[in-house]
Design a protein around this nucleic acid. Structure first.
Lengths: 240, 240
DNA sequence: GGCAAACGTGAACGCTGTTGACTTTTTTGA
DNA sequence: TCAAAAAAGTCAACAGCGTTCACGTTTGCC
């Protein structure tokens, strides 16, 4: 954060004799370029590779040039989330069936928010200024309204949907950053250890152990989402 | 990570003349003390305050002493999650009613995993070695089994429950680390802007805007959880 | 053409997790 | 009982990150 101008940081001035050239206005950097570069970096090397230094290297600029376009990293990440949503869902038209609409939006949004563990939280922290996001919210609320729910209930179910979608993305994104050895240990151990070790003490666990994998496949999220939509449909029917 | 011993780091040796005293075995540090200190730090100042230096300061030891007890920060965080679960749920006995059981476990687990955004992901990455966690998994699976579900279905619903619970914790934990001004901006803007600005373009959004807050209250998670449990109950009935 | 604004640069800061050699204390085994 | 090994804590330092601030260059405006 930039400090109050009344309190200059006690920092040694660079020796003018050794200071190199300034940058000047080159007029090729802009937010969109930075964001698209950030997306490419994440897709190639994961979200932990997204540093200012990396962005600078990719675009042949000083890392600090990024601060001319984004106040700080959180602002970069917020804008990143919005851009990913636009890429995925700009121009989206609702499907004829409400469930399909909500599913398509949620699955795509989750995929977008997988980019970085903080993106979901940042999306929730500030009302977006993006027309695409407004429109998607409107579409989902409209889908719930088509079930006969009033505005307050539609909002409540929408927030449940958001919590689940962004939560799943946040969790999986954090998981993806763990080192592969840490992650890989899981499946093998569930399979081996509990078929034999603790069947008497934990019988339900022993019986289900072979099936306790796959929490992060896309179709697993869609399964959970389907449960949520079942419940919403059930409750809406109860309102009628 | 400690490197292979075949490849010493090219680092300048400290001048023996200036090197002070080593630490010796004082036998008062242990994992439990470190974990409980970590918990206290997080509760007092939030998860970003949890650094090795902070732990060292709290216990009057060098920060690097922590490495004698935990291989790295991830291992500390994993152990932290397990300890929090033990605090919350050790000795838990299932309620007479399956929904209440699952709800009590999920709400308490979510509360534990709010400690740090990475704890949920770390919990998923490795099969726990904690009896408490095994037992809780067994209890939840047992609750689903009591609905007449088979072992594979019980596992699938359990994973949905885990995804939702840990996801919600991960998201909210990340949200909690944002600065208060970023967080506070949200509610005011939902209230003001959309009652007036875009009602024609986004009618459902405009109607629901006054209700679009409160995503992070505990009762909101319980509402979403209730939806999930409704759906599980409905699908279990379809199996009968 | 000169000045102000915009934007990029470079040096440096503060902070974090981490490494590896050293020191001190405790434990072990003969 | 003593010496050696093990355990555990210390210290100095590293690499890397986000960030700040002063400087330098380019562009746009009057």
């Amino acid at each position: 954060m930039r400090k109050s101008p009344t309190e200059p940081a006690p920092r040694r001035r660079p020796d003018p004799a050794t200071r190199g050239p300034g940058g000047g206005r080159r007029h090729f950097l802009n937010r969109e370029l930075l964001l698209d570069t950030a997306i490419a970096v994440i897709e190639k090397d994961g979200h932990e590779a997204l540093t200012f230094r990396r962005l600078g290297a990719e675009l042949d600029v000083a890392p600090t040039a990024v601060y001319r376009h984004f106040a700080d990293k959180d602002e970069l990440l917020r804008a990143l989330g919005e851009r990913l949503i636009e890429h995925a869902l700009d121009g989206y038209e609702p499907a004829p069936e409400w469930r399909r609409t909500v599913r398509e939006v949620a699955v795509a949004a989750r995929r977008a928010y997988l980019a970085h563990p903080r993106v979901g939280a940042l999306a929730l922290a500030r009302v977006t200024s993006s027309d695409v996001s407004f429109r998607l919210t409107d579409i989902c609320l409209g889908a719930f309204r088509s079930l006969g729910l009033d505005a307050a209930d539609a909002a409540r179910y929408y927030l449940a949907l958001v919590d689940m979608t962004l939560g799943s993305a946040s969790l999986e994104s954090a998981f993806a950053a763990l080192d592969p050895a840490t992650r890989a240990a899981d499946d093998a151990v569930w399979g081996a250890e509990f078929l034999t070790a603790s069947a008497e003490r934990f019988p339900s666990l022993a019986a289900s152990a072979p099936y306790m994998t796959g929490a992060f496949r896309d179709d697993h999220f869609e399964f959970t989402l389907g449960l949520l939509l079942d419940a919403i449909e059930l409750r809406a029917a109860g309102h009628a």
